[in-house]
């Protein structure tokens, strides 16, 4: 395939598979899985430094910020104030204005609080952040996020870490048709076919963490996801045949005995 970069807010990304860095056994496994996935965007969380045990290694010793785009998130934030605070801390700790904004509404589902999300996004955009919002598969909310200045939206496929796959392909399709910015399907993917389906629907990228980190063999699953995203993208660009109820012969009748 020819070069097919993903461009968000003027930044060019080569990989359409983005990965999280949580839930791995150790940093060595994290790095191997990310290498196998071919992802050039990795999400990270912001937490307190362990000041009592300084022997622990740092994630960024393993992930060269020159090689990967480090995308900090506001994971674990359940209100606007916390999300805005963590975003500011992420910017202070990092090198860019990129933030994957999460404002969660409920602990059991980890579904986004979309009203809070829009409010937090407005504040951060005013402060010059490039806000990539983790949102529900709601086309109206997605459009509102774009209207206030989000350069991409990240609707979920299913609850975070659930592995349920693409639960509402029609809503995602409507978002993709309606919203004129890149769509990154984020959360809920379970296996390679889920990632391929997201891309076949027309997603610009897929972000996942648990599907890879939680697999029996994370390195192998990372590689499977790389090919799935690539294949799904190719199929989307190739343009699939329409679905028909009855058969259409592939071989000509002419010349038969």
């Amino acid at each position: 395939m020819q070069s097919d970069p993903l461009i968000i807010a003027g930044r060019e990304f080569t990989s359409r598979l983005w990965v999280g860095t949580g839930k791995y056994k150790d940093f060595a496994e994290t790095k191997k899985a990310i290498d196998a996935s071919g992802a050039d965007v990795v999400t990270v969380a912001v937490r307190r430094v362990n000041i009592t045990d300084r022997s622990k290694e740092n994630l960024l010793d393993y992930l060269d910020p020159k090689k990967y785009t480090i995308l900090p998130n506001t994971a674990g934030c359940y209100n606007v104030e916390d999300a805005v605070r963590y975003a500011r801390l992420a910017r202070a700790a990092g090198v860019s204005d990129l933030i994957k904004l999460e404002v969660l509404g409920d602990e059991r589902t980890l579904f986004p609080d979309t009203a809070g999300l829009i409010e937090a996004a407005k504040t951060l955009i005013k402060e010059g952040f490039i806000v990539l919002p983790y949102t529900n598969d709601d086309p109206i909310v997605a459009q509102k996020l774009v209207d206030i200045g989000c350069p991409a939206v990240m609707p979920l496929a299913a609850p975070i870490g659930s592995g349920l796959g693409i639960r509402n392909p029609y809503n995602l399709k409507i978002i993709m048709e309606m919203v004129k910015v890149p769509i990154i399907v984020d959360a809920g993917v379970g296996t390679a076919s889920d990632a391929a389906l997201a891309m076949e629907l027309g997603a610009d990228a897929v972000l996942m963490n648990t599907a890879i980190a939680g697999a029996q063999d994370p390195m192998a699953m990372a590689e499977a996801m790389k090919y799935a995203v690539f294949a799904g993208r190719l199929a989307y660009k190739a343009g699939r045949i329409p679905r028909k109820l009855y058969a259409t012969a592939s071989s000509p009748i002419e010349g038969m005995l």
Partner: peptide
């Protein structure tokens, strides 16, 4: 604070 592994 610093960055740690996280995605979800």
């Amino acid at each position: 604070l610093s960055f740690i592994g996280g995605g979800a």
